[in-house]
């Protein structure tokens, strides 16, 4: 009984880590954009673009690396388009984000259908053309140890490269945002762009850089979906994960570490829901899977409502900066 429970907990933890990786990457991308004062509803669209570009390129070239570069490039391209509309031309940031999400949800299927004739999917990737699991050193040697062995083997080791990239991205982004000159400007631009402008730093350039950062991270996130988690692009495969990442970013109050926590929480809820599938729980009976699926969204609304804590957005978020002439 205890051994069973331990096994289930270990597997749940491993599933949580795998599920959190794309959320973490996209949410950190959103963190760059939103801390610079640009609303980034387009996380979903950028993920989907990157997923398609990465899988299509990897399928054609047979190289997962070229696929990754293509995924990031496509995602950055859309981030720059968002910047062109919202930073250069002071367009409505939410409208622009929705426009990208909707365009991409159609475009990826149209192109995929026309180019590969597989009903909107991309061809299945060969094992060499996708990110496979990586065995960390010592996983085999430690395997015989009780408790630590299985935890190390299942939860820490054995994931694909992009999971570790996601893990590394958290401290890197935290360092960039809080400990570098760029980070200081980024945060200042999101709070008080006028002051930054007065100091002689370009608001537009800083926001564009933030959007490129968002593009790169969403690119990694999308590539994870189609070339690591799955072995092809499937229509609408981001399936709301971009919005979930946005919710995690808000739930994490636009800070890297709490955002990681929110991503893990949301991914855990998803892992539990997949595992339960109608199995009755002690005391509460069968919990509807749909209720568990809705938990992240309900929690985010509760947070925004101030029921649990308080979410304070960057002050200049959503406001296009108009330089005085």
């Amino acid at each position: 009984m205890i051994a069973d429970t331990f096994l289930i907990v270990t597997l749940l933890a491993a599933a949580t880590v795998r599920g959190a990786a794309p959320l973490v990457l996209a949410a950190l991308g959103g963190l760059f954009a939103e801390r610079s004062g640009v609303v980034d509803i387009g996380l979903e669209g950028k993920m989907l673009t990157a997923a398609f570009a990465a899988a299509a390129t990897a399928a054609v070239t047979g190289s997962v690396w070229i696929g990754l570069v293509a995924g990031i490039a496509a995602s950055v391209l859309f981030a720059l388009l968002h910047g062109f509309a919202c930073v250069t031309h002071q367009g409505n940031q939410v409208v622009s984000g929705m426009a990208l999400n909707i365009t991409v949800s159609g475009l990826t299927v149209v192109l995929g259908y026309a180019w590969f004739q597989e009903g909107g999917q991309t061809p299945l990737l060969a094992p060499g053309a996708r990110f496979g699991p990586i065995e960390l050193p010592g996983a085999a040697a430690l395997a015989s140890l009780p408790v630590i062995g299985p935890i190390y083997r299942e939860v820490i080791s054995g994931h694909n490269l992009l999971v570790y990239v996601a893990a590394a991205a958290v401290p890197i982004v935290a360092w960039l945002v809080y400990r570098t000159r760029f980070g200081l400007r980024l945060r200042a631009v999101g709070e008080s762009p006028g002051a930054v402008d007065t100091a002689g730093v370009s608001v537009s350039a800083t926001r564009y850089m933030a959007l490129v950062g968002s593009g790169i991270l969403c690119g990694l996130s999308g590539a994870y979906l189609s070339t690591a988690h799955h072995a092809s692009f499937i229509r609408d495969m981001s399936a709301g994960k971009g919005y979930l990442a946005l919710a995690a970013l808000i739930f994490g109050q636009w800070r890297p570490l709490p955002t990681l926590g929110a991503c893990l929480l949301f991914a855990f809820a998803d892992a539990v829901q997949l595992r339960l599938q109608g199995t009755p729980l002690p005391f509460v009976g069968v919990v509807p899977v749909q209720l568990i699926q809705a938990i992240p969204y309900i929690l985010t609304v509760a947070l925004l409502a101030g029921v649990v804590g308080r979410a304070v957005a960057p002050r200049a978020i959503g406001v296009p900066y108009v330089k005085e002439r």
Partner: peptide, 25 residues
């Protein structure tokens, strides 16, 4: 047959982009 119904979604997105986000442009 090469043009699926999703093409309509693309046009829809582009109209939002041009009429909404790029209106000032």
């Amino acid at each position: 047959p090469k043009l699926t119904r999703d093409m309509v979604v693309v046009i829809q997105g582009l109209i939002i982009l041009v009429c909404g986000a790029l209106e000032h442009a």
